[in-house]
């Protein structure tokens, strides 16, 4: 990299020298008369257009092929495959347009340089042509819209009733997750009940909270529909899991959701990428303050059996924070003790 910096510095020095030179020539230049419309600069500018645009097309193509594996993110969810297909179709369409228009741009620039012998073609209009290039883009775009809508509708559809619900809450500057526990229901919360320990503001007058648990990493089963129930308790954050093609804002006061099916376990992904340390991660993509760039949580995708086993082994939040039993209304105490798996003492 240092080389590049030096190269940039070198360029700047050359430029500076050139500037000084120009000042001299300018200072000595006679107050000019009107010269011919063009001089030799026209030629080399045309040549540079061809060279630069051509060069950039080649450079882009080279980089795109050579580093393909570095900049593409492997897909690990069912709808992600669709999204990825759409992405590459759009890439193909736009890529062709990009290349063709740029080739035209430099061909025209080179071919039609100014010549006093020639006159430009007076060609103000052609209704038929205009029609063609209104209708064709419209048709192509319609195709893209329709396929996009199809994917969009499936990926935003309601989650089935047997989905695994997992709550993700963003706050400055981390994520917290909560699982429903054995009753399959995530308990109610109220932001006024939040304190340093009860970060979710769980409301213990709701029995569903007794068995909820909050692990430090997210575990999800492969091949099963998972629904993230997303919320925030301070500013807007955004849940972004690049491998799952999943992104949804976490908005204070307005819970959001995203349903998906992961289709590769962490282990499988390690093999696919050849990286034994690979892990799925969730990042924050809505600026939320100082620590925005550090809001990370690990996601572990496992076979359903492993997942169930892991789930069964989790201790409820209440059992880990037994002080909060006092917040449970009297008549529910007994239920709480059983459901939260508290040891009687």
């Amino acid at each position: 990299m240092m080389k590049l910096v030096i190269a940039a510095g070198g360029i700047m020095i050359l430029v500076a020298l050139f500037l000084i030179f120009r000042i001299y020539t300018l200072a000595s230049a006679a107050k000019g008369k009107n010269k011919k419309p063009v001089d030799s600069s026209n030629k080399w500018n045309a040549a540079l257009i061809v060279l630069s645009i051509g060069g950039m097309l080649v450079a882009a193509a080279w980089y795109s092929v050579k580093y393909f594996d570095d900049y593409t993110v492997p897909v690990a969810s069912e709808h992600g495959t669709e999204v990825s297909r759409l992405f590459w179709w759009t890439m193909a369409v736009t890529g062709i347009v990009f290349i063709v228009t740029h080739i035209l741009l430099f061909v025209f620039s080179a071919r039609y340089q100014y010549s006093e012998k020639r006159k430009a073609r007076f060609y103000p209009d052609n209704g038929w042509l205009e029609m063609v290039w209104t209708v064709i883009p419209a048709l192509v775009l319609t195709g893209l819209v329709i396929s996009g809508l199809k994917t969009w509708n499936t990926m935003t559809a309601k989650s089935p009733s047997d989905a695994e619900n997992i709550e993700i809450m963003g706050y400055q500057f981390a994520w917290k997750v909560r699982y429903p526990g054995s009753d399959g229901v995530i308990g109610k919360y109220d932001y006024r009940l939040i304190d340093a320990t009860n970060v979710f503001g769980m409301d213990f007058s709701d029995q569903a909270n007794f068995d909820d648990f909050s692990p430090r990493e997210i575990h999800i089963p492969k091949g099963k529909h998972v629904q993230f129930k997303i919320r925030s308790r301070d500013v807007i954050h955004s849940v972004f899991a690049p491998h799952f093609r999943l992104k949804m804002d976490a908005v204070p006061g307005m819970p959001t959701r995203f349903g998906f099916v992961a289709n590769k376990t962490t282990e499988e992904m390690r093999q696919e990428t050849g990286n034994p340390d690979f892990d799925y991660e969730i990042a924050c993509t809505e600026v939320c303050g100082r620590g925005h760039f550090s809001m990370k949580i690990k996601v572990i995708v496992e076979e359903p059996e492993v997942y169930e086993k892991w789930k069964a082994g989790q201790k409820s939040w209440l059992s880990k924070n037994q002080d909060y039993i006092v917040k449970v209304p009297k008549k529910l105490k007994e239920a709480a003790v059983i459901k939260a798996g508290l040891e009687e003492d």
Binding site: P37, V38, S41, N42, N45, A46, T101, L104, L105, F108, S109, Y112, Q113, Y114, S115, R118, K119, A120, R121, Y123, L129, E130, W133, T134, P137, A138, L141
Partner: peptide
């Protein structure tokens, strides 16, 4: 909205076509 934008681009390109370009 991409359609009118595309029309503009094609019109610019056609303006260059068989012009007498002064750079």
């Amino acid at each position: 909205i991409a359609v009118p934008s595309a029309v503009k681009v094609f019109n610019y390109l056609t303006t260059l076509w068989r012009g007498n370009l002064v750079f």
